[in-house]
Structures are given as structure tokens and as C-alpha cells.
Design a protein around this nucleic acid. Structure first.
Lengths: 253, 253
DNA sequence: TTTCATTTATGACTATACTCAGTTTATTGA
DNA sequence: TCAATAAACTGAGTATAGTCATAAATGAAA
């Protein structure tokens, strides 16, 4: 069982045009094994970044993404308007920057809280359910977030989301692998690929919900049925033990 | 076998604050069954719309989406800057407006050209392959397009995309239903749901490619394997006849 | 035709994301 | 302590998407 993630390397990464040598300066008493890279400069940067993220999170939450101006964020973070764009390449970039950690936490928690003794499909719905609940807290924000996450513009965010996806895929793949070892699932399907498939199904249906095409109830009901189909497969091998309780699947349009 | 689509109702829909009665005016010699709704007004509007779409398409194609300004589009379409926004609510909206028809055509053609006598997975890869080829013609544009399509902002575009998705889902569902009738596939899975699953898999992997995380070769290779998994299913019912040629599935990122 | 009402067009204007030349602040070595 | 260097910050300025009051065009009625 390969465990989920080795979370984001060192926390911050700013604009990185710097390639300075890591000369252990005067002020730092190199305690422990680590070089204690904390000059005032680095500290200020981290503080500022934190202020920015906090300011943005509050404003996005209270006023909404579109309605929040970068000026306001800068003002509330007590920095110049230009400074903001030293930390995020664009407003959209900032959005991802602000919520990536929270999302990662939420998703990891979702896996942690998933009972190991539970039918696979219920585990899946449990995990996805928690993700959905997270997005349901602020649908407008979720919409904006998913729009940005779809296509990533900067290497930094690409990295962030790669980490996020690795966590999710890893988590689901673990569940699949466990089911395989238990003999519930056939062993010849790559758990990682299976995980990506299952997530894809979740994701597109999530978009449908957030896009307002599907009400939440129907979304979750259908999601379960669709996941069941993905698990059972389409091929006519054996009519086979239904892993899940049957539901009505009709309901056109 | 329920057939693909009843394509977009009447072609244009503009801003529609109009609820005018369809009084059959003087100029129109109502030939055939149709009211021939062609006043000068309507004609001008359609012409203008066409000019806008053409201008935008050319500019987006040659300069790229981000690099094209709405001014330029208006200029080339020979209309005022404000007029543009009477036809599209935003630049992004325009993007979708411009390419929706072409996409629909491409996708319908993909289904039309798919041989009925072909293993299901090959049919799928054929269809998806044509879609991929379409996007490959201009990757930057495809990126922008998919980003916009992910979350739709106006009712008009929502409708457009609904039509598009209906075509795609309908097409895939037909293939599934045929395989079910042929006995290759189990009959108890809703073809529509199955279609949505398969498309979801395609779509997320498409995003991975367009996002630059996966090279095209790997994308298409993995896609096939993943679709195979979705077809075969995960559940251990019978180890079962492999519908597809086996491929190496290992290859950690 | 002339009048009137309604739809459509327009470009000067506004709001705001983002840039950049110039300034401030931290760090380093003597 | 004091340059000298480099990094980080700044807000006035720029580019451009999108608005809106006004004007032109169209169609219907008289």
C-alpha cells in the first residue's frame, strides 16, 4: 500500500528568479540538522504571503471572487498593488494559491476518515461526498476554482495541483488496491488508472452540478449509479453479483 | 437506437429581450410551410453576426485568443466596439459562440465515420481520436475553449453546450446500446450513463494533455487502457475475455 | 408619406487587472 | 560601521474588456 503524498516541498516558492547560494548567514544559529534559512528577508516574505492569502481568502469568501478587486486585497494585506503580483501572477493564480492547501487538507481528511471495512462504492461515495460538501460551502467560489484548475497557467500552480491530484489518485488507488488484495476486485487492472477513471466520473458530474445543470440530489444519486457501472464494467462476462444496491437508472434528460 | 441530436433550434438567438409576435409582415412571400421570418432587421442581424464570428475565428486562429483584442474583432467585422457585446456577452462567450458549430460538426462527423463493424473500444478510440485531432490543430485555442466550456456563464452558451453534449452522449450511447443488443455488453447498464462515464475519462485525460502534463502519445496510449478498464470493470466476477489487446499498464509518472 | 415606437448601433467612457521605472530594505564583506 | 550589491516593494501608469447614454435604422399605423 503506497501512501498518499509527500506534501508540498518547502511551503513557499514565490517568483523564484533567485538562484542565490544558501550561505548560512550570521544571524541563524543553525540548530538541529536544518540550515535554519530564516533571514529577515525570507521571514518578511512569508509573513507577507500569509497576509495576502488571508486577505484574499476573507474577501473571496465574503464578496465573491469576481466582485473582489486586487486593490482591495492589496489594501487589506497592507501591501502595494504591485506587490501582490510578485506573489501571484494573476488574480486567478491567487485563487488557486489561496485554496490549494485547504483543498488538500480536506481531501486527505476525506481519505483518513474513510472506514476500511466498507463496500468499495460506499468508500468512494464517502470520499467524494466530503469533497462535494467542501465545494457546497461556497458554490460560486467552487465554480471559479474549478475553472482555474481545469487549465493551469503557471508552473507553480501546475505543481500545486499535481500534488493535489497525486493525493487524490493515490488515495483512491489505495482503496482499489485493497479491494484487489481482498479478492473483491480483479487484480489485473492498474489501480492508478482505475482511480483516475473513477475520479474523472466524479469530476465531470461535479462540473454538471456546479454549472447548474444538475441539482445536487440528482447529481449524487446518478454519481453512485455511474460509479457502480464503472466498477461492474460494461462487458458481458458474467451477469455477476451486483456490488451495489440497484437504483432506478431511467430518468431521461 | 435513439438518434443523436435535433440540432440547435433556429440558428441564432442573440440577446433575446424580444418577445415580439411573429406577425407575417408584408415583404415575405410565405413559401413552403415556414413563415420565412426575414425582415431587413433580422437579415442585418444575421449578417453582422456572421461577420463577427468570421472575424473572431480568423483572429483567434492567427493571433491566439489572449492576444486578440475585442477592438480588433469589432474593427475587422466592421462594427462598433459596443455592438460586439450585443452579440456576445463577453470575449469568452464569443469564443464558445465561434467554435460551437465547428465542434458539433466535427463530433457528428466522427460518429458518422465510425464503422459499425468494429470492436467497441476501437470505435471509441476512433471517435475520440477525431476529437483529439480537432483540438490538436490549435492547442492554445483548445485550451482556452475547454476552459470556457468547463463553467458556462450565459444561458445561450449553456444551451449550445447542452446540444453539443447531447450529441456526444447520444452518439456514444448508441454505440453502447448496439453492443448491448449484440450481446457483447451486459444489458443492465444505462447506455447514457455508460456514455457519460466513457466521455468523462476521455475528457479528463484530454485536459491532462492540453495542460501539458501528458505528451500526446502517452495520453492516447493510456486513454485506451483506461477505457478498457472502464469496459471490463473492476469487479472480480469472471476473470473474463479481454475485449482489448493487452498493453503494459505500469509506467509510474 | 409621415409619424411614432421599438430595436439595434455606436464610441466615448469606466473599471480594473497588471506592468515597470524608480525607491526602499536587507544582506554581505571589509 | 559603512559601502556595495541584490532582492523586494511601490503606486502611478497602461491596456483592454465591458457599459451606457445617445443616435440611427427599421417597421407598423395612420
Amino acid at each position: 500500500m503506497f501512501c498518499a503524498v509527500a506534501v508540498t516541498p518547502k511551503g513557499g516558492e514565490v517568483v523564484e528568479r533567485t538562484v542565490k547560494k544558501v550561505s548560512a548567514g550570521r544571524p541563524a544559529a543553525a540548530r538541529g540538522g536544518e540550515p535554519a534559512r530564516t533571514g529577515r528577508r525570507e521571514r518578511n516574505k512569508q509573513e507577507k504571503r500569509a497576509r495576502i492569502v488571508e486577505a484574499a481568502k476573507e474577501l473571496f469568501g465574503s464578496k465573491g471572487f469576481a466582485e473582489t478587486t486586487t486593490q482591495e486585497i492589496a489594501e487589506r494585506a497592507d501591501i502595494g498593488t504591485g506587490t501582490l503580483f510578485l506573489y501571484a501572477k494573476s488574480k486567478e493564480d491567487l485563487l488557486v494559491m489561496v485554496f490549494k492547501d485547504e483543498m488538500l487538507e480536506t481531501f486527505l481528511a476525506a481519505f483518513r476518515k474513510t472506514p476500511a471495512d466498507m463496500p468499495f462504492i460506499d468508500q468512494l461515495m464517502h470520499v467524494f461526498g466530503m469533497m462535494i460538501a467542501y465545494h457546497a460551502k461556497d458554490v460560486e467560489l467552487a465554480r471559479a476554482l474549478l475553472k482555474e484548475v481545469t487549465i493551469l497557467t503557471t508552473p507553480e500552480r501546475r505543481h500545486d495541483i499535481r500534488v493535489l491530484m497525486r493525493a487524490i489518485y493515490g488515495g483512491i488507488a489505495d482503496l482499489v488496491a485493497t479491494a484487489q488484495k481482498a479478492g473483491t476486485f480483479r487484480a489485473d487492472a492498474d489501480p492508478r488508472f482505475a482511480a483516475e477513471n473513477l475520479f474523472a466520473i466524479y469530476y465531470l458530474n461535479l462540473l454538471g452540478w456546479l454549472g447548474g445543470q444538475t441539482p445536487k440530489q440528482k447529481f449524487m444519486r446518478d454519481l453512485r449509479v455511474k460509479l457502480a457501472i464503472a466498477i461492474e464494467g460494461l462487458a458481458a462476462s458474467a451477469a455477476a453479483k451486483p456490488v451495489t444496491a440497484k437504483r432506478k437508472t431511467g430518468r431521461k434528460s
